[in-house]
Structure formats: C-alpha cells, structure tokens
Design a protein around this nucleic acid. Structure first.
Length: 262
DNA sequence: ACCCAGGTGGCCC
DNA sequence: GGGCCACATGGG
C-alpha cells in the first residue's frame, strides 16, 4: 500500500475524525470543532478570517482573536469595521498590523467584486477561485488552499509546516516547492474534500503533539514503522548514526504526553 | 530566558 | 527562482 494512504489509515484509526475547521456556535464566542455539512455565510467568513489569522501563529492565539471578533459582532457585519478596530480585536493573534491589512483588503475585495457576499466568491470553480485568492495581498498558497478546502468545500490539499516536517521525517520527499508537495498528496488520495480536510487536520494533530520540531515523541508515534527518522532515532536502522538531539524522549516527556492525551 | 506557533511579502542577488 | 528578513502575541 502507498505510504500516503497508509499514513491516513493509521492516523485516522488512532485519532478519529478531527472535524475541521472550527467555527463558533450560535450563542457562543469561541470556535469549536464540529463538522458541518453545509456552511452558512457567517461560518464561511469565520473560516476565511481564521485562515489568515493563523498564519505562523498558534491556534490558541487565533481563538482569542476570534472570540474578540465575535463579541464585537464582527461576523454579522464585516463591512462595518475599519482598520484600527480590526487591529485592536485581532491583536492576540500576532502580526496584527499586517493581518488587519490583509483582512481589510479581503473584505474590500468581496464588497467591491462580489457584491458583499463571500459565497459569491467561493461558489466559483476551484481553479479560478484559487487564482483569485492568490492575487490578494496576504493570501499565499496555504491560506488559499485552506479557504478552498474548508470554506468552499473544494478538494484542494493543504500543505503546511507540519505536513512538510512529517513527510520529510518519514522520507517521502525533500522538495522545497509547495506545488510538488501538494501534487504528491493529491495524486494519490481520492479527490474528496472530506478526506483532504481530515488528512490535513490529522497531520496537524500529530505535528503538534508528537512529531514536534524539537524532541519528537517517536516512542509514542503511530507512524514509527513507516518513518525513516523515527526508526533511526529508535536505533532500528542498522548502521545509521544517531545525531545529537536524537535521543529518545525522556521519562518526564512521556508522562507529560500521557497526561495530555487521555 | 529562551523557543515555538496551522505563512506571507519584500528585497536582494 | 531561491535565500534572507520583518512581522507580534502568548504559551511552555
């Protein structure tokens, strides 16, 4: 079986569905994970805004920003907020000056080009929509694909830092090009938004908790059998030299991990 | 006191 | 087309 399919099978079995992208329920302020079949206009806005806010930023900080936006009634009337109001509200998500500009230009674009409806933007077919998103300041390939996949429900695979790190360690490819990574996954997986969405979310889950940048918890990783670096760290690969920092995680790390994950 | 986080754009060669 | 750098807050 192809490794890319195998990874999905293993992670899905281990972690179950992740129900991305988190959105805020009626009457609440903070986003939660729960899969919706059909998104309303507010939820589409929230996903697109979240995709911009989470650029190189911990999701917890984005949650704080989205909570602020909800309390201010932002998603009910996105056209009624100016730059400095946005800056204040999204401050916790970091890079708030650039991100507020990115948001404003996104909002203005929808106002002027799509008669104020984000659905009119998102209802296009995937390829022109992707091009249009990429033409906006502050929307690069990952953010565009996140919006395509999670807000527009189109099968467009999202490649992020976790995807690259995990696939690098497993030994899939060492390419530096986003398009190569994206094609690698899309050419193997069924062209299905739900599968793409779960796959990406599962990689994030693994990357956050186990396949961490420093001191990855390979001893707990469900992918150890198919991961080159993991096997090297564990000493499974004969003759492979362990490098500094390749030690198996400490006891305290194991305990910490167990506490966090049930 | 570090290091890190669900990237992007600008500038330089 | 690639290699650097600024951008900012909050948690571990």
């Amino acid at each position: 079986m192809n490794k890319i399919l195998k990874i999905y099978e293993i992670l899905y079995k281990k972690f179950g569905p992740q129900n991305w992208w988190p959105t805020t329920r009626e009457g609440k302020d903070a986003p939660e994970y729960s899969r919706k079949v059909k998104l309303n206009e507010k939820e589409k806005w929230e996903i697109a805004v979240g995709a911009i806010l989470t650029q190189n930023t911990a999701w917890g900080n984005v949650e704080k920003a989205i909570t602020n936006l909800n309390r201010a009634g932002f998603f009910k009337d996105v056209f009624n907020f100016n730059l400095s109001e946005l800056e204040k509200l999204i401050r916790p998500s970091g890079f708030f000056r650039q991100k507020s500009r990115y948001l404003k230009s996104f909002i203005d674009h929808i106002a002027s080009t799509h008669r104020g409806s984000i659905s009119r933007l998102l209802n296009q077919s995937a390829s022109p929509l992707r091009k249009e998103l990429l033409s906006l300041k502050g929307i690069g390939p990952e953010t565009a694909d996140s919006i395509l996949l999670y807000a527009a429900s189109k099968p467009s695979f999202v490649v992020d830092a976790y995807t690259v790190r995990i696939a690098n360690r497993i030994g899939l490819t060492d390419s530096k090009k986003y398009s190569i990574w994206k094609t690698m996954f899309e050419s193997v997986l069924p062209k299905n938004a739900e599968v793409y969405g779960e796959y990406h979310a599962l990689l994030v889950k693994l990357g956050k908790n186990i396949c961490r940048k420093n001191n990855p918890l390979c001893f707990e990783c469900a992918l150890i059998k198919i991961c080159f670096e993991g096997r090297v760290r564990y000493g499974y690969v004969k003759g492979a030299k362990r490098r500094r920092g390749d030690e198996v995680a400490s006891r305290s790390d194991r305990k910490k991990f167990k506490r966090k994950n049930d």
